[in-house]
Amino acid sequence: MSEQILLTGVIPSHANGKRLDQALAELFPDYSRSRLKNWITDGSVTIDGQVVDRPREKVLTGMEIQVDAEIEEEQRYSAQPIDLNIVYEDDHILIINKPAGLVVHPGAGKPDGTLLNALLHYHPPIDQVPRAGIVHRLDKDTTGLMVVAKTIPAQTYLVAAMQGREITREYEAVCNGAMTAGGLVDEPIGRHATKRTHMAVVNSGRPAVTHYRVSERFRAHTHLRLRLETGRTHQIRVHMAHIRHPLVGDLTYGGRPRPPQQASAELLQTLQGFKRQALHAARLSLHHPITGEWLSWDAPTPPDFVELLAQLRRDRQAHPHD
């Protein structure tokens, strides 16, 4: 199924001489540039009644534009009744606190049972929005806050805000090693040369910047607060491993258990039993896509993370001079 839309407009004087795709982005800001470009190339756009299929075509003041196109529903994904922890909701956005173990988007080896399937069930009209409104992702075993757009205008705004680094995402993590101070990692991230499911710091990668500060130090671990400037796949996990402080539980990037000397049986059990990366998206802040109001949400630290911190504190108290 699909929705047929008809858009009309006239090229304003300030867009005289611009490319068609640029002019359409100004005329119809509710739609993404990539979507508009696709509509041009598939023949859905006319100028003064003539089909123009070249995005680079120059336009002149007063030209009449018409877009007669279809928005495809993402019906290839099924709606499934999966519980969602909704922190905030209005007519335009959802803020969700994602649990560990929930995959965000269907993919190879995981065709359903994802956040996307849950969103289609919870709010059926979201099937009109690309990717069911998902603007950014969290790894399967990372917990915490995500924003989801319920409408195309909201998604268009949020995607641009994410690309423009206007959405603040703060995380907490526990890493291996006792760090002495915070800092930042500014290293490009791309696909690993030989392990195709892994990411890595590579010269040919995309720019990636992670800020981190120390919240609490333990004998052989550190509780961190981190802020992303960019949103690369596995960014925090890769950057922390790169500076030799991989996250606790992150076996993919070297975070195997590294207990301090003379650790208690309880701490050993907690470290060995922590089967996911110790990473939680704790705070999300953004301008509302419609009202412009600056909003911020916090997600409580999940129970397994709380228990990990408690065991590390007990270990520090038991060995005050280490």
Score class of each variant (00 low, 15 high):
T151V: 08
T151H: 05
I152K: 11
I152D: 03
P153M: 04
A154H: 08
A154W: 12
Q155W: 01
T156L: 03
Y157N: 09
Y157K: 13
V159H: 05
V159C: 05
A160P: 03
A160Y: 06
A160T: 14
A160D: 15
A161P: 13
A161M: 14
M162I: 11
M162Y: 07
M162S: 04
Q163A: 12
G164W: 03
R165K: 15
E166W: 00
I167R: 02
I167T: 01
I167A: 07
I167P: 01
T168R: 14
T168V: 14
T168Q: 14
E170R: 15
A173D: 10
A173P: 08
A173H: 11
V174I: 15
V174M: 10
V174R: 10
C175H: 07
C175V: 15
C175Q: 09
N176L: 15
G177R: 09
G177F: 12
A178V: 10
M179W: 05
T180Q: 13
T180L: 09
A181W: 00
G182V: 06
G183N: 10
L184N: 12
V185F: 12
D186K: 09
D186Y: 01
E187H: 14
P188I: 05
P188F: 01
I189G: 07
R191Q: 11
H192R: 08
R196P: 01
R196F: 13
R196A: 09
R196C: 02
H198E: 15
M199V: 02
M199R: 14
V201W: 09
V201P: 07
V201I: 14
V202N: 05
N203M: 07
N203S: 15
S204P: 00
R206P: 00
R206N: 08
R206C: 00
R206L: 12
P207W: 00
P207E: 12
A208Y: 02
A208Q: 02
T210Y: 06
H211A: 12
Y212D: 05
R213F: 00
V214Q: 03
S215F: 01
S215K: 15
S215Y: 00
E216N: 03
E216M: 06
E216I: 09
F218A: 10
R219M: 11
A220P: 02
H221G: 00
H221A: 03
H221R: 01
H221V: 02
T222C: 06
T222A: 03
T222K: 01
T222I: 03
H223E: 02
L224K: 04
L224H: 05
L226C: 14
R227C: 11
R227P: 08
E229H: 12
E229P: 03
T230A: 07
G231P: 10
G231A: 09
G231H: 09
G231D: 09
R232W: 07
T233F: 05
H234F: 14
H234C: 13
H234R: 10
Q235I: 04
Q235W: 07
Q235D: 08
I236C: 09
I236N: 04
R237T: 13
V238Q: 01
H239N: 14
H239M: 13
M240V: 04
M240T: 07
M240G: 10
M240D: 07
M240I: 06
A241P: 10
A241C: 12
A241V: 07
A241W: 08
H242W: 15
I243Y: 05
R244V: 00
R244L: 11
H245Q: 02
H245D: 00
H245Y: 03
P246K: 04
P246A: 08
L247Y: 10
L247F: 12
G249M: 12
G249S: 12
G249L: 12
